[in-house]
Design a protein around this nucleic acid. Structure first.
Lengths: 201, 201
DNA sequence: GTCTATAACGAGATAGAC
DNA sequence: GTCTATCTCGTTATAGAC
């Protein structure tokens, strides 16, 4: 999976290890529940060393969103490059979310969205951009699918794109209290069916 | 709106005022970003007085969910009592979420769901129950609508109910970074349309 | 680049007077 | 039921040695 944190070939540098650990903590517990002490202890360095790499918590959060977004939209590029069919593209998009949830995590930006009002401005901006770029990508995929006659025309492809993202983020959110990942797959299929994507074989 | 905090007739007692203030803080900023100092200052009492009413933060959180759930499911009872038509019922359900978002808030239990792993066990249990009861209520409403021939039969009414809740929770989540409430209405209409509920007149 | 040490503050929580 | 005062701990962050 393209969105997985880091290739496990060699020991990555400290900044990368910090981002890996912080990413997991934010995706599972939230930014406000993650402390520098948590991260430094798991990385095996001191609090002070952490501050050398990321002077303030806002810097760490910015680093997390930038890396996550970079990987996420690189994965979307990859989908467009390798999958010509619109239904396959949308299923692959949903699968990214499914893979994150399968690892017991929430979408990083979905998690930050819940803390939105408490975020530093630089982080707020990046989280908003993550969602805007997601809507735009999906909108274009849907529009092209409609133009090819392979997807029913929705009232608004933009609203459909937003509803799909909302459904996936919400599915991750409500799957965790239910302690069951199988729930996500059923919701995801229902969302895809609503867009006109048939269930997979 | 039935889910509004407290009737503004007279000055409510201290415990109620505490719950009102804490509820707003949790719905806008999250439980981990809300402190006893925040609440006590806004209520106009001291930290110590707050602890008299709610000895630990877990007690306050339990009080919040219990009151919220009580009002929420009372509102659902009211919907069933006053609206015989399934489409009206589902639109009214969506409107509860819309009214919460219109006040700049996230669903209390959706907000707690994002902090789920950090919640005291008693709060986790109540949040899970909130969602389970929601699914069950929607499932029965959908089933009756199908039996009456007023709703197309879904593959699974349970999965449809879960997808609807997920979509609404997610719509609230992503609406806040977008700084626009009009987005919610479009998403909500798309979700209702997917269930077979026509747009309102 | 990592460390020890510590500052400065805010958190949840308690004792005991009124 | 509310107060003052205080405790203890965890938090982000910095100074300066190695």
């Amino acid at each position: 999976m393209v969105t997985t944190a880091t290739p496990d070939t060699a020991t990555p540098d400290t900044a990368t290890r910090i981002l890996d650990v912080a990413e997991e903590l934010v995706q599972t517990r939230g930014l406000n529940a993650m402390s520098y002490a948590d991260v430094s202890a798991r990385v095996g360095i001191t609090n002070a060393s952490l501050h050398y790499h990321f002077p303030a918590k806002a810097d760490l959060a910015v680093g997390l969103v930038d890396r996550y977004s970079g990987r996420f939209f690189a994965a979307l590029d990859e989908i467009e490059r390798t999958r010509p069919d619109v239904a396959d593209r949308l299923r692959a998009y949903v699968d990214i979310y499914g893979a994150v949830l399968a690892r017991g995590r929430m979408c990083l930006c979905g998690m930050l969205a819940s803390d939105f009002e408490t975020l530093p401005a630089a982080v707020q901006k990046r989280v908003s951009e993550f969602f805007e770029r997601s809507y735009t990508w999906l909108e274009h995929v849907i529009d092209r699918g409609v133009a090819e006659g392979r997807l029913p025309a929705p009232a608004s492809s933009r609203a459909t794109a937003e509803a799909l993202v909302a459904g996936l983020e919400g599915a991750m959110l409500v799957s965790r209290p239910a302690a069951g990942t199988e729930r996500f797959a059923a919701i995801a299929d229902a969302l895809l069916a609503a867009v006109g994507v048939p269930a997979r074989v």
